[in-house]
Design a protein around this nucleic acid. Structure first.
Lengths: 354, 354
DNA sequence: GTGAAAGCGCTAACAA
DNA sequence: TTGTTAGCGCTTTCAC
């Protein structure tokens, strides 16, 4: 049926101009007579030519216009977390106007498969963004280095030669801790994000805590220490999901000496704790205070509003976008730590008396 | 500092073989002596060559290995809906092993901007997937046609020359309606997905209903009719989000003659209705029955479990992936309608007596 | 303002 | 089994 798609050469010859002139007509870069351009575009229209083939352009210019975003895990898990989604949204909004597209690249692969998704090794991308801080020995980071792909690391431990964007979560948690101390709490437990790839669930002992693989979890835990808090219990979760928060809440609140306050490392976890408390017939915050982190809007938790630490998600996405832009321009953007703010809600109050 | 990245030619000359032989060493396609391959790989290692440049390969083969996924709206909105996310997850899982990557392409752009995101016009992609059924005159669909990009349309009205994947939501809703009729309900209201781009919120009159732009909303409404139900009220929402369900629930349940049952076109909306009922002090299902659509797992709605119609999200993603594969192989996959199933929960029961 | 020519890095005929 | 030879479709000097 349809002939092979027309090329710029076809259009050029049909318009009786050279390919270079035809190219100019489309790119707009360089001087060209209005009349000539019109002729070229008319010829294109006629032939059903819908603009320069991106593949040719990309090879020639050495750029794909693609930013690979490496999502730490199964999409399902990453995207159930509004934090990832809103950050990604901010990133896409910033990249779009720059003519850059976002390629989703799975991070870890199924067990048994090679440690790194093939796309990391071989997809065309001008810059890579690792959405959840790879560890130092991260095979993804290693592969990107080998390929020479400039990289932005989000919420990670600083790595030489890699742009870093993060939030000041450590001091945010410290401020949250201070808030609870001021209210008079003495028995404070904490519910953490995953420690590492093993994603265990349950109480963590000192050994286990010492071996935390993921920087973000370690950092937020350290924030508590900064506030002078030694948690009476540290509960680790496999992922930042409501159900894991609920499990944590049930366990902590039914223990022999339950805490009077629980600080979770994410709002989703904290929300789960609130649900567990309700389930157990405990009033929040009269019987137990609960605080989270992220500053999400969780309408379904009504009438409660979580006390939390809000982080600027859209801005974080934008900051990542700007880092990408800088990297593309050949400069090395300075590491950036975005500020967070304590957001008091209805879920924290003085400890129960007596 | 670092020289320009080495090319296959550099590796070839360093290994004292021709470029084509070197190419064979990497692609594995075609006969090559073990010894030769080893030599080539060693030379590559030495030069810091990390494999063939995808851009060259893509131009040569005429394929980018990229599937453009056009998400109907701001990421933020699309991805707050577990339905999109889980479908996308299924798609990515299917595409990954095929060596295909997913490029996120925003659908509608900001008002004032061109009707179609520039990526739709000019990004390299072998196939496009429109995640939420474009309408007939959809500018995105038109642009893709012009480019000659094979397209998969999800949940859309059938369009000539476009692969279609969807679920049998119409009969699913009909079955849900039948379920409520059997329970004895006579005053049934419904809360719908958005009617179209205007995304209004509130009661819809007959005129408004007649002008529904989005196929999916129309189809699910038609399902009610199939069951013989004429809703006592039709409330349209701007998006499938909990808060819009809550608003709908508040309005419907405080009206002069409130319905005894509410069928929402999505689980998120239904969950919002349940929250509104609780807020108003109504018991579900004793005072009002609520049903949704999608079959999501919503732990935070505990102790309630929504009566819903479950759709196979991961399978839908996989089906889209297979359609992509077929399109890439040059065939035209038949339209596919995946089955749904009634999932009774705790939120429906007989209407209040008296 | 326009055209000629070179070449981005690779793969796939085809020949040797 | 390896090498030679053409391009894939485009942009970009550099002449004219």
């Amino acid at each position: 049926m349809s002939n092979p798609r027309p090329t710029l050469a076809d259009v050029a010859s049909s318009a009786h101009v050279s390919v270079s002139t035809a190219s100019l007509a489309f790119s707009g870069a360089g001087p060209i007579a209005d009349e000539t351009r019109r002729r070229v575009l008319a010829a294109a229209e006629e032939l059903g030519y819908s603009g320069p083939n991106p593949l040719g352009r990309q090879l020639r210019s050495g750029r794909s216009g693609i930013v690979g975003v490496i999502i730490g895990d199964a999409l399902r898990r990453s995207f159930r977390d509004p934090v990832s989604v809103q950050t990604l949204d901010g990133l896409v909004s910033t990249l779009g106007p720059l003519g850059l597209g976002v390629l989703l690249v799975p991070g870890s692969t199924a067990p048994g498969a090679p440690a790194v998704d093939p796309l990391v090794e071989s997809a065309a991308m001008d810059v890579a963004v690792i959405m959840w801080g790879g560890t130092v020995g991260d095979p993804v980071l290693a592969a990107l280095r080998r390929r020479g792909t400039p990289t932005v690391l989000v919420e990670g431990a600083p790595v030489e030669g890699v742009a870093a964007i993060g939030i000041d979560d450590r001091s945010g948690i410290a401020r949250l801790g201070a808030h609870l101390l001021e209210l008079g709490h003495e028995r404070i437990a904490t519910v953490t994000l995953a420690f590492g790839h093993d994603r265990r669930e349950g109480l963590a002992d000192a050994d286990r805590v010492a071996g935390i693989e993921w920087e973000i979890t370690r950092r937020r835990l350290a924030g508590l220490g900064d506030a002078g808090i030694t948690p009476v219990a540290i509960w680790e979760t496999p992922a930042s999901l409501v159900e894991h928060g609920t499990a944590a809440g049930r366990a902590l609140l039914t223990s022999a000496e339950p805490p009077t306050a629980i600080i979770a490392q994410s709002d989703l976890l904290a929300a789960g704790v609130v649900l567990a408390a309700r389930e157990l017939g405990l009033r929040v915050p009269q019987d137990v205070s609960v605080a989270g982190f992220d500053g999400l809007d969780l309408p379904w938790l009504a009438p409660d509003v979580l006390t939390s630490v809000s982080q600027p998600l859209a801005e974080k996405g934008a900051a990542i976008g700007h880092a990408v832009e800088a990297l593309l321009a050949g400069s090395t953007p300075a590491p950036q730590l975005l500020p967070v703010a304590l957001r008091p809600g209805t879920t924290t109050g003085p400890p129960p008396t007596g």
